Simulated scan of single mutants.
Amino acid sequence: MRSMALSLLTAAFLAGCQYSAEPTITEPVQVYVSDTRKNPGKYLLYIDASELSRNVRASDFTCIAHTFPVDLRAGFKTAVELAMQQQFETVETVIAPVKQSELRARQAAGVIKVTGITLDAELTAVPGFLRNTMNTSVLMTAGLTVDGSANGRLLGTTVQGAGKAQADGGMACEGGSRAFNASSEAAIAQATRQIVEAIANSPEIRNNR
């Protein structure tokens, strides 16, 4: 009986806890561009952020029993949607890719496609006298294409977002989720900012009709 209880206790320790990090975006990312006019016309927006989620374990033994699910999917999607609303007169988010040949029938000047490509995230717990310090880093890449209804490919590029943050580890490493939220928000902001800058600096998009 005693050995069984010890086994259950050991299993519970190894299972640890999950401390989820799901950054919340509520306002458009601040971007400074030379031309603040919105691009004319209606654009369809398709976002595939399915690859921007992963489970992370600490790189050292201090918090190795815990997992940290880092999920940028909703946060990145919201950030991109808010950003596109600032850049185009009319934006309609679609749930499936739209072919260029379908744009005229939908009275759209173009289609924007944003795809999350990779997500790398790391956590290191630094032991302290009474509490640990959680250091996190997040690195994401995303692809951006814009196709016009009549002019074909207007823009194609890859962007990257990186963020680092630190937080008090708390009583049982739960501070890792707070640190991941902060570093994830920074990565999303940087990637979104690069997307906006690429669109704002594209004369092909500005002149697309």
Rank of each mutant, 00 (worst) to 15 (best):
F129N: 07
S34A: 13
Q100G: 14
K42D: 09
L123W: 01
P69K: 01
T62W: 03
E92S: 07
P23H: 09
F76D: 04
F88R: 11
T90S: 11
Q160S: 13
A96M: 11
S20H: 08
T118K: 11
A165N: 02
A83C: 05
A189P: 03
A179N: 06
T26W: 00
T78H: 03
T115I: 13
G163D: 00
M171Q: 14
G170K: 03
L154E: 06
L82F: 04
D71F: 12
T78Q: 10
E197R: 05
C17W: 08
E197Q: 14
P40V: 14
E89H: 11
S20W: 03
Q87H: 10
G16D: 03
I112P: 08
E51W: 05
G16H: 01
N207S: 01
R37M: 06
G128F: 00
V80K: 00
V29H: 02
D35A: 08
K99T: 15
G170M: 01
D168L: 04
L123V: 03
T90D: 09
S50C: 04
T141G: 04
F129W: 11
A49G: 06
I188H: 06
N55Y: 09
G148Q: 07
N151I: 05
A11F: 15
P203Q: 13
P203R: 09
I205W: 01
A191F: 08
V114N: 05
A189F: 05
Q166F: 08
A21M: 08
Q85C: 01
A11V: 08
A12Q: 12
K38D: 01
E22H: 10
D120V: 00
N201Q: 11
Y32T: 15
Q87L: 03
F13V: 08
R104A: 10
M84T: 14
D147A: 13
V111P: 03
P69L: 04
S20E: 12
T24Y: 11
D60T: 08
D168W: 02
G148A: 03
P127V: 13
A108S: 05
L130A: 10
T158P: 12
T192H: 00
L6K: 15
D71Y: 09
A79T: 04
L52M: 09
R37Y: 05
A12K: 15
Y46T: 02
D60P: 02
G75F: 08
L9C: 12
V146F: 08
G161I: 14
A200V: 11
F88M: 06
Q190R: 03
T157L: 10
G152M: 14
V56R: 04
R193N: 08
D71A: 12
C173S: 06
V80I: 15
L9R: 10
T10K: 12
S183Y: 01
A172K: 04
Y32D: 14
S202A: 03
N151M: 07
T136Y: 02
A12C: 06
G110P: 02
P127L: 06
Y32V: 15
D71N: 12
M84K: 05
V196M: 13
L82A: 02
S3E: 07
K99C: 13
F129Q: 14
M4S: 13
V196T: 05
L8C: 15
T78E: 15
A162S: 07
A179Y: 00
G169P: 01
V146Q: 03
S183E: 00
T157M: 05
I205M: 03
E122C: 04
A167F: 01
G75S: 09
A65P: 09
V196L: 10
Q86V: 05
